[in-house]
Structure formats: C-alpha cells, structure tokens
C-alpha cells in the first residue's frame, strides 16, 4: 500500500510540474503574440498591480502561517486566561500587543480572524488590527526618515494612532457583542476536542500548513481584487484632480484620507508618499493620511468583508474615518 501511495505522489507531482510548465510556456507565447494589441495604459496598470502583489505576498504568506499556528496551537483556554475581563484593559492590552507586533496590514487580517474565532473579544481583535500595522519599529523608522529625520511626525503618528485605536476599539466594544464573523462554529461540525491533545507535533505542524494553504487561497483572491482596483485608480486618476475641496485643513484631510484608502500602500512605504505632499497640504492632513492608511484601506476592506459581516465592516470603516479625522483635525488647532 505504501509503495502504491508513494508512486501515486510521484506521478501526481510529475503531472503537476508538466501542467505548470505547459501553462507558463503557453501564456508566454500568447503574451508575445498578443502584447501588440494591449494598450500601454493596461500594461502600466498591470505592472503596478503585480508590483503591489509581489510586495504584499511575502507578508501575506507569513500572516497565514501565523494564522495557521494560532489555529492549531493556541487554545481557547490560553486566550481566556490571557485576555483581561475588563473591557478597557482588554482594549489597551490588545493595542499594546499590536504595537509590539511587526505586521503589515494585509498579513494581519487572517491573524485577527483566527484570534476572534478562538474567542478573543471582538474589541480586542480590532485594537490589534488597528495598531499592528500602524505602530511598529519599521514604520516608526521609515516615518522618521521620510520627514527629514524629524521625529515630530513619527511621534505624532504613533501617539495619535494609538489614541484613535483605543477609542475606536472601545466604541466597537459598546456597539457589538458577538463575534461578527460570517461563519460561526455552529455552522460546522467539530471533531472531538479531546483528540487534538494527543496528536503528535509533526501532525500538528502538518495541520498548521494545511490551514495556511487554505487561508492563502481564501485571502489571496481578495488581495488580488484590492490590488487591481488600487492599480487601476493610480493609472487613471490624477492626484491633483482630487483636490476639489480646496486647500483648507478639512478639505485636504478628507482628500488625503481618501488617497490613503485608495492607494492601499504598505505602511512601511506610505510615509515617503505622505511626505511628498508636504507642499500641497497642511501637516495635519498628512498626519491623517499616515494614521488612516495603515488602519484601513481598500484591499484591507475587501479582505475584511470576506470574513466579517458587512454591517460590522462598514461601521468599523465609519468609526475609523470619523475618529482619525477628529483626532488629527483637533491637533491642527494647537
């Protein structure tokens, strides 16, 4: 039996490899034949689209591996013991953990889903989701660099970001009691919970990998849709045409936040883009751009929509927009 099984695997891998090679050859040939018929602007769009994917995929892969790890190794008991019962404490703790955790906004979505599924309260999950990509050593450093080695903007970004995240997560805790996930545990028949403890380590690792693979395909399609829309907007809409609201603080903050949302930049790189607007908009609006973008953006929203209820995602989006706007605008009066 074992022999037959291993032959089967060998045979399948040969087929898989030949299918892939055939696919690559075929598409490359087709590409050579057809590329004359494809417009320049689509080629540019495609390049930007692929570059967002190439940049994001390594982080998504790491994210799904961590999500897989949580799924297999972290039990509800651990979480119940670690997370404070007090709502405020839970929110603050999750924000601090998020701040220490160097994540990217696309990598963190699958992690948060697993955590919430495992019994982490929704408000704590949100806190983690908001500060994870916004506050971490790499982002702090790149912001510091982008603004001419001036620590003021980096400090404001972290400070305001943290305050806004706590406020938003607390509001979520008041508004929502349930998990807000699309599928709940009861939708699926679960296996005997006592079984898992006896599994060997390798079986667990294997399980973690399988979870990660499925998660990658779950997440991947939303990442791809989001990246494509962001690339299309960049190719076809001029940044200047967005400044229709004039150049007051309110108008330009709205524009900068819209830009942060649409561009869906990685939080490590967005500081440089933000800095390039220094001459056009007041610094409060740049701060709004820097705080809003990592918390939520287009590709991130689509990923969230795939796993949380639409109503929850919408309210979260509104809350983030309102609070980030208020926090950064208030600052401009000091």
């Amino acid at each position: 039996m074992r022999h037959i099984h291993s032959y089967l695997i060998d045979f399948t891998s040969l087929i898989a490899i030949s299918v892939v090679l055939y696919f690559i050859l075929f598409t490359q040939l087709a590409g050579e034949k057809l590329s004359f018929h494809i417009s320049d602007s689509f080629l540019q769009l495609n390049t930007i689209f692929l570059s967002i994917l190439i940049e994001a995929i390594p982080f998504v892969l790491i994210g799904v591996l961590i999500a897989g790890f949580i799924q297999i190794f972290v039990t509800e008991d651990h979480i119940r013991r670690l997370i404070p019962k007090n709502r405020f404490l839970a929110v603050v703790m999750s924000c601090v953990v998020g701040a220490l955790f160097p994540a990217c906004e696309c990598g963190i979505v699958p992690i948060v889903r697993r955590l919430v599924e495992k019994g982490v309260p929704l408000h704590a999950g949100v806190g983690f989701l908001l500060t994870g990509p916004l506050i971490n050593p790499i982002v702090i450093f790149s912001t510091y660099m982008a603004f001419g080695n001036d620590s003021k903007m980096a400090a404001l970004r972290m400070g305001i970001g943290f305050v806004a995240a706590v406020v938003i997560a607390l509001s979520i805790s008041i508004l929502f009691r349930s998990k807000q996930l699309k599928h709940t545990i009861s939708d699926f028949t679960s296996s005997d919970p006592t079984m898992k403890r006896n599994e060997s380590f390798t079986v667990k690792i294997e399980g973690m990998m399988k979870h990660s693979i499925d998660e990658f395909f779950d997440m991947g399609k939303y990442l791809i849709i989001g990246a494509f829309i962001a690339a299309a907007v960049q190719t076809h809409i001029s940044a200047n045409s967005l400044f229709v609201f004039g150049d007051g603080v309110v108008g330009s903050s709205v524009v900068m936040m819209g830009l942060a949302y649409i561009l869906s930049l990685c939080s490590e790189a967005d500081a440089f883009i933000g800095a390039s607007f220094s001459n056009l908009v007041p610094s409060a609006s740049i701060l709004a751009f820097l705080v809003f973008g990592p918390m939520i953006d287009l590709k991130n929203t689509i990923m969230l929509l795939s796993m949380f209820k639409a109503r929850f995602v919408l309210i979260l989006l509104v809350l983030i927009t309102v609070f980030v706007f208020i926090c950064t605008t208030l600052l401009s009066f000091f």
Partner: peptide
C-alpha cells in the same frame, strides 16, 4: 491530493471552518 478526505478535520480543533 490523495489523502482520504475524512481525515481532513481529524487534527482540527473545534471551530475549524477552513474551506
């Protein structure tokens, strides 16, 4: 690919909902 499908959930803790 050639694994028996009923094993799929064997190592899953409860609440597993992966596709």
């Amino acid at each position: 690919i050639w694994e028996n499908n009923r094993n799929e959930h064997a190592y899953c803790p409860p609440g597993c909902n992966h596709d």
